[in-house]
Computed example of a mutant assay.
Amino acid sequence: MINYRTYEAEDFLFDESFRQWTTETTPQTARFWEQWLVQNPDRAEVVRQAQELVRALNAHYRDDATDERLAQELAQLVGKAAERRDSETEETPVVPLSQRTWWRWAVAASVVVLLGLVARIYVNRTAKPAAYSYEYLTKNVPKAPLEEKVNTGTKAINVLLSDGSVVTLNPKSRLSYPHRFSATTRTVYLSGEAFFDVVKNPAKPFLIYANQTVTKVLGTSFLVRAYTEEKDVTVMVKTGRVSVYSLKDYEKAQQSGLRRVEGVVLTPNQQMTYNLEENRLIKAVVEKPAALVVNRPSREQEFEDAPVARVFASLERTYGVKLRFDEDAMAACLVNVSFNEENLMERLDVICQTIGASYEVLDGQIVITSKGCH
């Protein structure tokens, strides 16, 4: 049996089972590697580095990142290294390949060359300031050392913080946080995806540093997705109010003493996407807005000859999303409808079809257009 505990990142690169798990996982390979990680949690960082190398190589060759292609690259490098080595040495007795000094030297040289290629590809594709990375931020915290929770399993795990806030950490994610928060702020660092349910404390803001972004809250629930290999960071709000900034702008404001930082303010059922390549914050409504009050009385979603303005007002209360429309133009529009399990967008589809209107999502709001009813 292969002793994977002795493997470094470059060794995993040439393991067929590991590459298959990283790029196109099957139930069998997923089960093996996830169980291995649970048994060897101290190797999680090495495995993560190896996965990044595999993905970079796979992206470079795109559809041609096959075992044959990788073997071909390795064979060519080994062959060239061996030729150079053989030309400098005299003929030696025949010994097994794995025991030949030149073979070990050739493989080592090949790995170095190939890893150099992969590293350049990976850096070019994910280039970002080193000072903004999860590794840099967590290793350069000026105060007490951080604790880290790494989720190497297949299910989400809950992390209870010292202030009572709960973080639901999704698979392939890492969270660093102090054992006890400081007297002025509550700061954590995320790589991956997590849902935060933050205890409200206006005197002590809660800050999440994640892949070139800073999310600031006082007390609310929201999701942050910030995987290192992805080009976007996403923040989706469930309850409360959240402010999101680019880390560069936030740090600049902190250093200069500015009280106001340009960012994006999110309310329930809104989301922000930060494009790392364009350095741009984009605000929108979440794909499937959820009701803010699950057990709202059913009569609020049953309408009989109801003015459409009252229907829209009810939807605003239920979902916390602002609906913009011309109330005067739609004054004569009446609605007869009953809703049960439909989400916000489905309900708007029905209402707009009924009154001959249309809608679009603009800057975290929904704008409804209609010529009116007669």
Rank of each mutant, 00 (worst) to 15 (best):
Y61V: 01
D328R: 09
C352W: 07
E73M: 05
S165I: 03
L13T: 00
V237L: 00
R174N: 08
F12D: 04
Y245F: 09
P171F: 06
S165E: 01
R299W: 12
V311S: 03
V217Q: 04
E287K: 15
Y7K: 02
L258K: 15
L362G: 04
Q353L: 11
L137E: 10
L344Y: 02
E52R: 09
G153R: 02
R85A: 10
V188P: 00
Y177V: 07
D11A: 10
A194T: 06
A131G: 05
A156E: 10
V321E: 01
A210T: 00
L334S: 08
P142F: 05
D305N: 09
K322S: 04
P41W: 11
Q72E: 07
S256F: 08
K204C: 09
V233K: 05
F206P: 01
A313C: 03
E8L: 15
F181I: 04
V337W: 08
F222C: 00
T22W: 02
A9S: 13
R100A: 08
N336H: 13
T184V: 15
E193Y: 02
A357M: 05
A75H: 13
T354P: 15
A109G: 13
L146A: 14
L175K: 01
Y177C: 14
Y122R: 11
W33A: 01
E24F: 10
S246E: 03
V167S: 03
R225E: 11
K80Y: 06
Q270M: 05
A130C: 07
A284V: 07
V112K: 13
E262M: 09
V141E: 09
Q255K: 15
T23G: 03
S182D: 14
E91G: 12
L13N: 03
L53R: 07
A119V: 15
N211T: 07
N158I: 06
G356H: 13
C352G: 06
L169C: 06
V286S: 03
N343Y: 05
A108Q: 14
F222T: 01
V167E: 08
L161T: 07
R310L: 04
